[in-house]
């Protein structure tokens, strides 16, 4: 162990640390390469995004063009923190998550800003439905469970309390005048007022977690049966239909949630007794780092070209 070697290593380490402290320059250098982020294959958000911009070859597989490097991350939170940490990044995430983070900025898509109103009136195109599908419970044996599930969906979709929960948590719903109050529907479901202890498991998409979690909290605070609980076991839209038909790891789920439409092979497993529907719309928003001040709106074509590697550096895009 010669000292000269050691001191060289030490000097390198010091340089390392020193540059770390001198962190980031505040100028946005447009000659820098565009850093592409995406959700990993299988995500409903990803499907929605790439379908929406017309680059469906990569919506479920990493069939990137040669020379294109895309960093895959696991969830909305991950992609937001990554884009927020890299000045030259571009990515996408759910609409409801964007406003709460100061390090990222949402882009206009085809000239339309991503807001709830624009989603509902159809001008904003990057969107998808949040769907649910119910387990086909046997009327006689599992009456309470069936009531608990149907009651939850009724609460969610038809009552003012339920709809408020959805909209406060980022789900996009159209304003309706035919909503009931919880009191009106409470009597239909005996499980809400009885003394029976019961737990219903949910499964499926992680994208719906915020909304459904809040809905569960609200419902359980409203019902008088305090022994009624709902547990979330979200692991991805792919598990929704399987969860309510076959179950997973020995667990039988009551309601499966999806952040996309039910596929044909999944639909084949369902019967007419499996109630299903859509309870909210989610929009996907292209995001860039907040320091990327000159880039404020994008089009499907631009996004496609970026993810195809035809635009390599930011000056390619910004000069248009």
């Amino acid at each position: 162990m010669k000292f000269s070697k050691l001191s060289k290593l030490g000097a390198l380490a010091l340089a390392f640390a020193a540059t770390a402290c001198s962190s980031v320059s505040s100028e946005f250098d447009t000659s820098k390469a565009i850093k592409l982020y995406s959700r990993s294959a299988g995500s409903g958000t990803r499907e929605c995004f790439f379908e929406g911009i017309g680059y469906s070859e990569v919506k479920a597989e990493d069939k990137w063009e040669s020379g294109v490097t895309v960093s895959s991350v696991e969830s909305n939170a991950d992609i937001m923190s990554n884009v927020g940490g890299e000045e030259y990044a571009i990515g996408y995430c759910s609409l409801d998550s964007v406003s709460s983070v100061s390090t990222i900025k949402a882009l206009k898509f085809e000239g339309v800003e991503a807001t709830k109103e624009n989603v509902l009136n159809g001008t904003y195109k990057l969107k998808r439905n949040f769907n649910y599908v119910l387990r086909n419970y046997d009327d006689a044996a599992d009456a309470s469970k069936k009531q608990a599930c149907e009651g939850f969906i009724d609460f969610l979709t038809n009552t003012t309390e339920g709809q408020t929960v959805i909209s406060t948590n980022g789900g996009i719903i159209s304003a309706r005048t035919d909503l009931k109050s919880f009191k009106d529907i409470e009597s239909k479901y005996a499980i809400f007022t009885s003394d029976e202890q019961l737990n219903i498991d949910f499964c499926g998409s992680t994208s719906v977690e915020t909304i459904i979690k809040a809905a569960v909290e609200k419902l359980t605070s409203l019902v008088s049966n305090k022994k009624l609980t709902y547990t979330l076991n979200q692991s991805g839209s792919g598990d929704a239909v399987n969860g309510i038909t076959e179950g997973k790891n020995g667990k039988l789920f009551g309601i499966g949630f999806l952040s996309r439409e039910i596929k044909t092979d999944e639909a084949a497993k369902l019967t007419d007794d499996n109630a299903r529907g859509s309870f909210a719309i989610d929009a996907v928003v292209p995001i860039v780092n907040a320091k990327n001040t000159s880039y404020t709106e994008t089009t499907a074509e631009e996004l496609t070209k970026m993810y195809k590697g035809e635009y390599k550096v930011w000056s390619d895009v910004l000069s248009k």
């Binding site: 990993s40 294959a41 299988g42 995500s43 409903g44 895959s72 696991e74 992680t206 692991s235 991805g236 839209s237 792919g238 598990d239 399987n242």
Partner: peptide
């Protein structure tokens, strides 16, 4: 590990 939640 990547995307294992949605893999079938």
């Amino acid at each position: 590990l990547a995307g294992i939640g949605e893999a079938t």
